[in-house]
Design a protein around this nucleic acid. Structure first.
Lengths: 202, 202
DNA sequence: CCTTTTTGTTATACTATGTAACAATTGTAG
DNA sequence: CTACAATTGTTACATAGTATAACAAAAAGG
């Protein structure tokens, strides 16, 4: 197995520097606007030389991407198992698990939604989630129309993200168990319920 | 009637300058990223002195706000009439009118969704739309729970915006008439349908 | 312990923001 | 038409951030 995929052979100084820069960006972005954060400020908080930043990242956006990728990968795998559920009770349970997970990594998701100038990242996340539902969610695939399935999976993806964002803004109430029910009823069931109606379009 | 609300008494040079700056920003933002656009570039394209920008706007964001406010006001009034519809056929018709209107002012809405660093503007728009539905959409108000109505109106607002964004990205197909039906079935009816189920939460 | 790699220090070029003083132009009122 | 007022243009300058380079210092690895 190749060692390049899981870089454990990295110089400890490099690991330390990159970790310090990530942590500095996270702590800053939770304080104020992403747009107002400079590379100088990040390196100062990380207690690292200014030029060191450019030895690891070509831009601020790349660092932000790395920070988000830290946790979004796990979210995607959870959403995949979510999308494959067809049983009613499992659907609700998996919905609960998603919101419990988000509650644990709340800081990370606050960054995803809060940081301005990451519309691009958000769109990418929406596309990924929509693709997962388009593949895995069987009731949607049953409607022959290509445009319809694309539109409905986009609806599910954006609705899920919007629900997560609202939940974070609403101090994470109601509890995850109730949010799991909301996910099932409001997002999945109601969308699946209109497949036959909407897919009758030309 | 006060003249301050509709400033017709403005110096024609001021009107001209502000119009040139708005047009320059719009043409630039449709070409590339908002983040990469500088004030210098805007003033050059507008054929206006650099310092003149600061005589009218305190920042680039303020100019962007003015550009968006040009057209979003009309959208909001249309959405208000949309939210008040309870008749089934009217719901579909008003949905069609919304998408016809968006098709006409497509450039403006592309700016709303495309321009990075306007997450703040987007959130504000969502809040405004959600407030309209929370007030006007009677079936939602029937559920006593305050949290539920806030969540559902947020769901409608974000779903509508996401559907508009998807429609613009999809080259404005299907036609507005079909999108009107989608609006009715996917966003309104399915949301109203789960009110009783979801509002049974604590 | 010696070599390699990484990091820190310092200097520099470049670009953009934002302000100020003064001249030139344009609009307006008499 | 003229004189006054307001706006705009020109030039200069202070500040801040990006990005790169050369060389010294420190840390990692054999």
């Amino acid at each position: 197995m190749p060692k390049k995929t899981s870089p454990i052979n990295v110089d400890p100084r490099v690991r330390r520097t990159r970790r310090l820069l990530r942590e500095a960006l996270v702590s800053l972005i939770l304080e104020r606007d992403f747009a107002s954060i400079s590379i100088r400020e990040i390196t100062e908080r990380a207690e690292v030389a200014y030029i060191t930043f450019f030895r690891h990242y070509e831009s601020l956006d790349v660092l932000l991407m790395e920070v988000l990728d830290e946790g979004l990968g796990e979210l995607m795998t959870r959403i995949e198992t979510l999308a494959k559920q067809s049983d009613t009770s499992n659907l609700e349970t998996e919905g609960r698990l998603i919101f419990e997970y988000i509650g644990q990594k709340a800081d990370l998701f606050r960054i995803l939604f809060k940081s301005q100038s990451v519309t691009r990242v958000r769109k990418k996340v929406v596309r990924n989630i929509a693709a997962v539902f388009q593949k895995s969610c069987l009731p949607l695939a049953r409607s022959g129309n290509q445009t319809t399935t694309a539109m409905l999976s986009n609806h599910i993806a954006t609705s899920l993200l919007a629900l997560i964002e609202w939940w974070l803004d609403n101090k994470m109430t109601p509890a995850p168990a109730q949010m799991g029910r909301v996910y099932k009823n409001l997002i999945i069931d109601s969308t699946v319920g209109v497949v036959s109606t909407v897919s009758a379009m030309s």
